[in-house]
């Protein structure tokens, strides 16, 4: 299983993604944003960071990098694409995912653990989870408030495209458990075809006990189990 981790000027979670996927048994390669081909990769990860300094809007300029044309092609071919944090913002800007991410309700940059409720296991990104399962995974963002208009929200909910929501430790959806004001507590959505997924929390930062938790492995292992020859390490 070959995974690409994209690198834009300002990406800063690329090494974390590489390390986590490598540990789980993937054959991981960095791909610079000027590359025009992603042939041969089964999984493409758009990592977190501050691509192009977040100028104009988060992800707005990265969206026009040469590699993004290859990402759109790969997505249209049904290959798996995962966007984490700034990667989620880039995928929304590229219109591969519905909605957009705007400034946190509090105006503060938030760096903390959050609880996420897995809404469905019927995707390649959540198949190692059970619906309703609560994961503890960190966030680190200033613009993570998910916004889409009512019609879009109704549509993505009807299509079961909301994969994770911010919740209390017991799994209940409360305003207090919604760290950034995201509409309907949405933390991550997939496309209609279910092969492109973006989320604001960082599963790659929750794969080692020494880092405070391993719940991120549920999401990354889901991915690797969805692909040929996963070679998953016992973990």
């Amino acid at each position: 299983m070959r995974a690409a981790v994209l690198r834009f000027p300002g990406s800063n979670c690329d090494q974390d993604c590489h390390l986590a996927l490598d540990f789980l048994g993937a054959d991981v390669h960095y791909v610079w944003h000027k590359e025009e081909s992603l042939d041969g990769f089964d999984l493409i990860v758009v990592p977190g960071g501050f691509s192009y300094g977040d100028y104009l809007r988060c992800g707005a300029i990265a969206r026009f990098s040469p590699v993004m044309r290859a990402v759109v092609r790969a997505a249209n071919e049904g290959r798996l694409v995962l966007g984490i944090c700034n990667g989620f913002q880039i995928l929304c800007e590229a219109r591969l995912l519905p909605g957009a991410l705007v400034r946190n309700r509090s105006l503060h940059f938030l760096c903390q653990d959050v609880h996420l409720r897995v809404e469905t296991a019927a995707t390649p990104f959540t198949r190692a989870c059970t619906p309703g399962q609560v994961l503890k995974i960190p966030i680190a963002h200033g613009e993570g408030c998910y916004f889409a208009d009512d019609a879009t929200l109704d549509e993505i909910e009807a299509n079961d495209q909301v994969l994770v929501r911010y919740c209390a430790p017991d799994g209940s959806l409360t305003d207090g458990a919604n760290p950034n004001g995201s509409r309907r507590s949405i933390a991550g959505v997939c496309n209609r075809e279910r092969n492109v997924f973006g989320l604001m929390p960082h599963p790659e930062r929750a794969c080692e006990p020494v880092l405070g938790g391993t719940d991120g492995r549920f999401l990354l292992r889901s991915l690797l189990e969805s692909l040929p020859n996963p070679g998953i390490h016992a973990a």
Binding site: V102, R103, N104, R105, S106, L107, C145, F147, D149, G181
Partner: peptide, 13 residues
């Protein structure tokens, strides 16, 4: 400009 339906916390501040 942000759309009217979008929360604008900067504007509130």
């Amino acid at each position: 400009m942000p759309k009217q339906s979008v929360l604008d916390p900067q504007g509130v501040a």
